[in-house]
Amino acid sequence: MDWLGLYNYWVVVILMMAGFYIVIAQGNLVKKIVGLNIFQTSVFIFFISLAKLDGGSAPVYVEGITEYSNPLPHVLILTAIVVGVALTAMGLALVVRVHELYGSIEEDEIHEQDGSD
């Protein structure tokens, strides 16, 4: 049962692959961005689960507790979440612009219109 301690990484890998599949296999641009979000969240879960310490408590100082989870990954992920939302906003803005130009957010329809020009 030695390998059972690795299950957190496997959850992360499954989520990551679901997001990856959406990004490469789906033609809809909004859905691609949703896939990117799932991928991102899986990375967040990966970092936060690395920070977890057996017997540790949340990294807020309390008298008498000496074991805390590692605060550094928490900080990095705080930054990453906000940056991720900025990225989502940027991507969705591009989708809106593409819809303005082509009247569609399906990848293959956009390619068709490009080909007929």
Partner: peptide, 19 residues
């Protein structure tokens, strides 16, 4: 909620508000 369970309340707050 998973982040709360993993001892990261700050991250959980941000994820809930922003994500």
């Amino acid at each position: 909620s998973l982040f709360v369970l993993l001892d990261a309340p700050d991250v959980a707050l941000t994820e809930a508000a922003v994500g």
